[in-house]
Design a protein around this nucleic acid. Structure first.
Lengths: 226, 226
DNA sequence: AGTATAAACGAACCCTTGTTCGGTTGTCAA
DNA sequence: TTGACAACCGAACAAGGGTTCGTTTATACT
């Protein structure tokens, strides 16, 4: 059971209003409607608090979709009229934070620095986490074509587990201090050096010194939506 | 009880899709989504038939409201999977059947031929289906390196919607009768010929005659688990 | 006082999505 | 043959509605 007292009065009002609205209309309200009915004057504040509620697990959102809201828990004290059914309750689904973007010329952002306020949460399946606790997983959106040799495209979402070490055969994100670049490659420790093998079958590996190679995370899965 | 036989096949499909969509997502589809998933090429035709359905008492609409749809009667034959409940209850996590493998030298398997087997059901998120009814989606596992120019690797799972036509910009699976091969490319109709553009940014398009090119399905998403 | 952070504001931006309209096709009856 | 009508198409239009960003206020900690 969720502790609704942890929420601000505003956020509780929003949940109540959303629940009511859906049971009245059969579809969710817009951000502007939520604002108008809970005394919020700016759409960005509604958006801000909706993201808070997503992070706290009370609802899920579909990005860039009008009225793309759904509640994930029953809302107490929503004054639904008798006879109306409770709003659908979505089962808990694993999701990971998309904490930024990844491209060749920058190290990958670290989750610790990240304030989970304004970015988005995407839904994943359990398979994509390969047993990793959702709290230890994070995701990055690929920017630019620099990852083509890893068979990864602009717009793809890469799901990682944060770790500084790797086993042979893992695909990892590494920061190469001498080249000043991030790359995604298969990891193989070969004696005193490390072989980084591109995913693309026609491309050649590079060999680096362990001291110039910082592992940023292990790739768990890649999602491409077209 | 309504007499659904009075409706056209199209209208029954629309009702079934709307019901399914709401149960998957918790909110109604757009008229464009309805069109795409029931083989209607014009939003005005969807609008036309929606108004027919309103007049016949099957649903209500809110004017000038996005996704402002509501079913007024239970829809028979909406083949919700067991465990999925009727409209206005919890959205279920959709899943699609992996019905085979895809590689260059063979046409795409057709779902109709497939003997459904529980083992080959994989979980997906609603986002990956882009509004497609899960029952009209299917998935294939990629075999071999022949799809590298589509930035797709051995082992990837490609999620499709079966359809014989495509819009510009869609990524589609096509069978090229003259080359005897299946390929995944972006589709562009240019006058009398078709341009098939590889996803890989450094590769050149091919041009084919519509008569030698059979569209097998539209690619909705790609999943890579490592 | 100075800094950091949560919460809020409002306007601009632009993708999403419903609506409209001229035109085409097919059927049926006069 | 003609006209009426239902069904459909494609494109353009415009309102709907999510997102972003620079700023501001309030509170707490140093």
């Amino acid at each position: 059971m969720k502790d609704f007292n942890k929420l601000s009065e505003r956020q509780r009002n929003m949940l109540r209003y959303i629940d009511n609205y859906i049971s009245e209309n059969g579809y969710p309200p817009t951000i502007r409607q939520i604002g108008e009915n809970t005394g919020i004057n700016s759409t960005s504040v509604v958006n801000y608090n909706l993201n808070k509620l997503v992070a706290a697990g009370y609802l899920t959102r579909s990005q860039h979709v009008s009225r793309g809201l759904r509640l994930t828990v029953p809302v107490p004290g929503s004054d639904r009229k008798p006879g109306k059914k409770a709003v659908h309750v979505a089962p808990a689904r694993p999701s990971v934070y998309v904490i930024g973007t990844i491209f060749a010329s920058e190290p990958v952002p670290v989750p610790e620095d990240y304030h989970y306020d304004e970015d988005d949460l995407i839904e994943v399946t359990a398979d994509m986490l390969a047993g990793t606790d959702p709290d230890e997983a994070f995701a990055l959106r690929v920017k630019g074509d620099s990852m083509v040799d890893a068979m990864i495209r602009e717009g793809d979402i890469v799901v990682f587990r944060r770790q500084e070490t790797a086993k042979n055969g893992d695909m990892v994100a590494v920061w190469l201090t001498e080249r000043n670049e991030t790359t995604l490659k298969y990891f193989f420790k070969e004696g005193t050096r490390i072989r980084l093998q591109p995913a693309h079958p026609h491309m050649d590996p590079i060999f680096v010194d362990p001291k110039t190679c910082r592992i940023e995370g292990k790739v768990l899965s890649v999602i491409r939506q077209l």
